[in-house]
Nucleic acid binder design. Structure first.
Length: 536
RNA sequence: GGCGAUGUAGCUCAGCUGGUUAGAGCAUACGGCUCAUAUCCGUAGUGUCCGGGGUUCAAGUCCCUGCAUCGCCA
């Protein structure tokens, strides 16, 4: 099966934060997982660079829009490699081929009669880049930006979205998996019970020039959402590149809940108008709060991925984000929670298991995979749990239930730790007569570690690679050929390494909420210059 | 105001189509082991399963209602 997993293209009006990292880590994990499952996968992320807000942000920092978007887009691009995120394509909406594709699509939709010219007057909020209704206003202000909208009358081009409303309702109803989790599907369906309005897809150049000119009227540029969504097509070479036919059928978009409407409503109707099949699935995730407070610039609690990597390493961050959040729901981030997971799940449970197992193979078996003798019940029990784990893990990963998938793995890690205590290899090692038993126990342990490693590749690629190398596994990870019990070959070399996850000390003992800001700023102060551009 | 979701041990949460004495992890206390990253293993718990009413032989699990929190829409 072919897979085309995408993140949203991130709007370059802000720097990369925890939320961006979460989306992109999920996509990377899914991409790695599907590859290991033997599928043909393409993974795309990128940046969204047109619109009012970008033009204004550029003006504020005394840059041309071009300079500004180049700078911020580069920050996004450079955020991913340290998190072990490896997209196949990083797209920018200012790329020449994207601009051409958007223009050709606009022309196509126009030719089909789905775009018309009309006058519209209303209250326009620059922050939202849209017209607001009277009822939305709070004390005459935009509820989000707390500024008064401007009354504007202008002529614009509209996309006949309403024409496809009935079709869209039918498609969502007939395809229960189209929008996931179900709560968001219900939300979209309930929104669609009301008549859909047509979508204004242009902005007059008198008001905004930082956009893609309409091919049929150069006094207008394209509305930023109409431009942005098309990235999913441009990135695989629509209309006639070979990758388009190869991947579009497998398109699965991943988004945060704030951009549900453009993806669940605008986008499928645009595709329908173009005569294309809709994407296969839309996966919607929730928000990360920080210490139970909404993350925002004004509160000053924005979490930067780079700081977390510095704190405990990329793999630990990836594990935490996937393990801690039930996909689809909101969750709360805190340094304490991150460190707790790192210490208890990674250092104590997994890291220590690897360490003690490999040390015993080194001490008792001369760093070689021992031959397995006759299996006893406790061996069979662990082996069955480990092979069962891979199957259950795959099932959960396929439906984006990352927290459940990882829980299955950690059940087996706990079981392996118990298995060691129950079989006490250090006692067996004292008695030459129990040589075969010792070998069998350690072989069973190594095999269990091998299967655990297989499941960890998508989530913690660097750690899994270290484990794989330590175990002497040579071939690249692959579920079909490596999920069976007993693949390790006796006498092969085992190479113990440094601890995978050194334990971390908690930064401060249970900081009171009021202390957070002071603490964060003092942390920043402790690392002078790290955010200053161009300073050594 | 309309629609929907959620409310389970100190904390974070599991509990599918109703069925034995309500579970896991973390945190806490005590005990054990020594291969291991002061790690691991065992034992001990505590819960009006938000309140109230109802259906049923049987409800955390279904229905009604109230409260609280959140989301979408208006």
């Amino acid at each position: 099966m072919n897979f085309y997993i995408t993140t949203p293209i991130f709007y370059v009006n802000a720097q990369p934060h925890l939320g961006h990292a979460y989306s992109t880590i999920i996509a990377d994990t899914v991409s790695r997982f599907q590859k290991i499952a033997g599928n043909d996968v393409r993974f795309q992320t990128g940046t969204d660079e047109h619109g009012d807000k970008i033009a204004e942000a550029a003006a504020r920092s005394n840059e041309t829009p071009r300079e500004y978007v180049d700078r911020i887009s580069r920050m996004f691009r450079e955020t991913w490699p340290p998190l072990h995120i490896e997209p196949d394509n990083f797209i920018r909406t200012t790329d020449a081929n994207h601009i051409n594709t958007v223009r050709s699509i606009l022309q196509k939709v126009h030719d089909r009669g789905d775009i018309y010219f009309s006058e519209y007057s209303g209250l326009y909020c620059k922050g939202c880049e849209r017209f607001l209704t009277e009822k939305e206003l709070i004390n005459g202000n935009c509820p989000d930006h707390l500024t008064p909208p401007e009354p504007i009358t202008e002529q614009n081009y509209f996309f006949r979205m309403s024409k496809y409303q009935e079709w869209l309702i039918g498609h969502i109803e007939q395809n229960p998996e189209f929008i996931q989790p179900e709560r968001y599907r219900n939300e979209v369906l309930s929104f669609l019970k009301e008549p859909l309005e047509d979508l204004c897809i242009s902005r007059p150049t008198s008001r905004l020039t930082w956009g893609i000119p309409l091919p049929f009227d150069d006094k207008f540029v394209t509305y930023v959402w109409f431009d942005a969504l098309i990235n999913y097509l441009t990135g695989i070479g629509y209309p006639d590149g070979p990758d388009f036919a190869r991947y579009w059928q497998g398109a699965e978009h991943l988004i945060a809940k704030d951009i549900l409407k453009p993806h669940a409503i605008y986008w499928p109707t645009m595709l329908k108008s173009l005569g294309l099949e809709p994407y296969r699935k839309l996966h919607v995730h929730g928000y990360w709060n920080v210490n139970d407070t909404k993350m925002s610039k004004s509160i000053g609690n924005v979490v930067r991925p780079a700081d977390l990597i510095e704190e405990c390493g990329a793999d630990s961050v990836r594990y935490f984000l996937l393990r801690e959040m039930s996909f689809g729901l909101d969750s709360s981030f805190s340094d304490d929670a991150l460190i707790n997971r790192h210490n208890s799940d990674l250092a104590n449970d997994l890291g220590n298991l690897v360490s003690r197992s490999l040390t015993m193979v080194k001490n008792f078996c001369d760093c070689k995979v021992p031959p397995a003798g006759a299996m006893r019940d406790s061996d069979r029990e662990l082996a069955a749990a480990a092979t069962g784990m891979v199957a259950e893990y795959r099932k959960q990963m396929e439906v984006f239930a990352f927290h459940r998938a990882l829980r299955e793995v950690w059940k087996v890690i706990a079981m392996a730790n118990r298995y060691i205590v129950n079989n006490a290899p250090w006692e067996l090692a004292k008695e030459p007569a129990s040589r075969e038993r010792l070998d069998t126990v350690l072989y069973t342990l190594l095999e269990t570690l091998r299967l655990i490693t297989l499941t960890l590749h998508p989530v913690m690629p660097a750690t899994a690679t270290k484990m794989k190398d330590a175990l002497g596994v040579e071939s690249p990870p692959d579920f079909d050929s490596q999920a069976q019990w007993g693949r390790l070959v006796p006498a092969a070399a085992v190479t113990p390494g440094a601890p995978l996850f050194p334990r971390l000390k908690k930064a401060t003992p249970a900081p009171a909420p009021a202390d957070n800001r002071a603490r964060q700023s003092s942390q920043k102060a402790a690392r002078p210059g790290r955010t200053e551009r161009g300073k050594p």
